[in-house]
Computed example of a mutant assay.
Amino acid sequence: MSTIAVRTSTAESAPLEAFVACAHQMLDPNTPEAARCALEPRLLALLPTLRALGVFELFDVRHPALRTWLEDEMQEGPH
């Protein structure tokens, strides 16, 4: 899987762009565990905006582990 540059501030990018970039890095087996741990809160912070935009009503997450994680997080609500 190729590395996608993640901008340091999600204010610089669209929420969907930031989500996809973070998700790609989290799923990349070459991403160090510390980096994955840092990406998780960024993904969680994007969920309310993506839900409000209806992203998860329009698109299915096909990666099984990411789909399960997202479903669990969205059921639990905000942290």
Rank of each mutant, 00 (worst) to 15 (best):
A11I: 06
P41A: 04
P41D: 08
M74R: 09
S9Q: 15
W69E: 12
L47I: 12
A65T: 14
P48D: 14
R62Y: 12
P41K: 10
H79S: 13
T8K: 05
E33P: 00
L47W: 13
P32I: 08
W69F: 12
T49C: 03
L70W: 07
L53I: 03
P41I: 05
D72P: 02
I4L: 13
R7P: 00
N30C: 13
A23I: 00
R7Y: 07
L27K: 14
P64I: 08
V20K: 04
R7Q: 04
L53H: 14
I4C: 01
A21Y: 00
A52K: 13
M74W: 15
L46R: 10
D72K: 07
F56N: 02
R51S: 07
T3A: 07
D28H: 05
N30V: 05
P78Q: 11
L27W: 10
T31D: 01
A21D: 04
M74F: 15
G54K: 04
D28R: 08
N30W: 02
Q75C: 08
E33N: 01
Q25T: 03
A23P: 01
E57R: 14
R67K: 15
D28F: 04
Q75R: 15
A23R: 04
A65D: 13
A18N: 00
H63S: 11
A23L: 02
A18P: 02
Q75N: 10
E76N: 12
L44N: 06
L16H: 01
E17Y: 08
L46F: 12
E73Y: 13
G54Y: 10
S9Y: 15
L16N: 03
R36H: 02
L47S: 06
P41W: 09
T68K: 03
S13P: 06
L47Q: 03
R67D: 08
V61D: 01
L70R: 08
L39F: 14
R62V: 07
